[in-house]
Design a protein around this nucleic acid. Sequence first.
DNA 1: ATTAATAATTAGACAAGACTAAAAAATTAT
DNA 2: ATAATTTTTTAGTCTTGTCTAATTATTAAT
Lengths: 218, 218
Amino acid sequence: MFSQSEENYLKAIYHLGNPSQKGVSTSDIANKLDTKASSVSDMIKKLSDKKLVEYKKYYGVNLTKKGKLIAASVVRKHRLWEVFLVDKLNFTWDEVHDVAEQLEHIKSKKLMEELDSFLGFPKTDPHGDPIPDKDGNLQTIEKTLLSNLKKGESGICIGVKDSSSDFLQYLDKQNIKLGDQIKVMDKEAFDESTHIQIANRNMNISKKIAANLYIQLQ
Amino acid sequence: MFSQSEENYLKAIYHLGNPSQKGVSTSDIANKLDTKASSVSDMIKKLSDKKLVEYKKYYGVNLTKKGKLIAASVVRKHRLWEVFLVDKLNFTWDEVHDVAEQLEHIKSKKLMEELDSFLGFPKTDPHGDPIPDKDGNLQTIEKTLLSNLKKGESGICIGVKDSSSDFLQYLDKQNIKLGDQIKVMDKEAFDESTHIQIANRNMNISKKIAANLYIQLQ
DNA sequence: ATTAATAATTAGACAAGACTAAAAAATTAT
DNA sequence: ATAATTTTTTAGTCTTGTCTAATTATTAAT
Ligand SMILES: [Mn+2]
Ligand SMILES: [Mn+2]
Ligand SMILES: [Mn+2]
Ligand SMILES: [Mn+2]
């Protein structure tokens, strides 16, 4: 079994791991976990001894197969709990993260299997992020940022890149929800804002908003 | 906020606290938490500094108002989670304890309020133990051990004293459930076993079993 | 190709929470 | 009342995970 701290490091490396080959840097991990680089160095050594990461001094770190499986399991738990909180306990999508950060460390195989079933085997969490299956596999959905769409293109809003309270509450205020149909009507050259039609309403959104909404093209 | 360890100590003191005046002894706490007396001494000092317990060296320990409230809140969470696991996630009553030991430390006011509501504001957990309310108050139900009943007396089985897997599984095997109507038909002087009629079945139970079943007299 | 800047690692310290062994206090037995 | 036993506390050590400060390696700039 692994400590909460070890699990948090593995998860951070999992999230920071790029599709390219390069290892995740010490400072990126430190930044993500809001800790110091020296602490990260220490922990990486420990994870390396336990064969959870591949580590070559000064050249960053990569998860081993085993490390990746543990990380994916923590992410799976985090996202399943988020679904539970929203679907069953009336949490809003901007309230779930902190509680899920705690719940993701609960150790019980049966609990997660039963919860998964109780929730109807959801495939994505309230923010549109995919839920890894028991073997750590993610279903990859073709998606792109709204800011990449050209005038006239349309699709469905299926996720958020930033899931900060501020952004999520902005979306609530504008009544923008996952599942909404979106079409790009025009793009302003001057301020790089976008005119969109969403669920039959017209609105103008800033560059920053468009850069944080994931769209499934149609 | 308090650490898991601090919460576990407070809970142990809460459970060991007798209605009489005497403080809870160091060794009883050590025994309950499966730790050493020296560790208990250290922690008691810490809890005393934080005004969570009243402590006089060599004379045991008592919870302060604040300490009692925290302990009751942990017990509340433990028991509400047990109800959740049994009522919603198909756990049996002998499977819930270890997971509840973890879940009881999750910190979120909203979570527990919503869970309480989701479960329909249960008053007792799957073992018949009362669930403290938000202010730490327990509703006291008049109950006595089956071993205290005299020939001819009857009542309803409302709880278990021992909630070990072994005992709970024994009850399952004998199909003895909380809520069952029980009447004492006879008591054997020789082995101190009891003949009972339960839910219209007749059976003989040992002294030890009778000493671990709570009955509400009628 | 050196030098300057940045990033990563090591060294040393600290807090929480546990342990063993030793000392001190309280309780029980004679 | 004194001695023996049990319980509790203290002293000192260890592990985990963190930090600051100093050192070393890598990368960027001249
Ligand atoms: Mn989250
Ligand atoms: Mn999420
Ligand atoms: Mn329990
Ligand atoms: Mn219980």
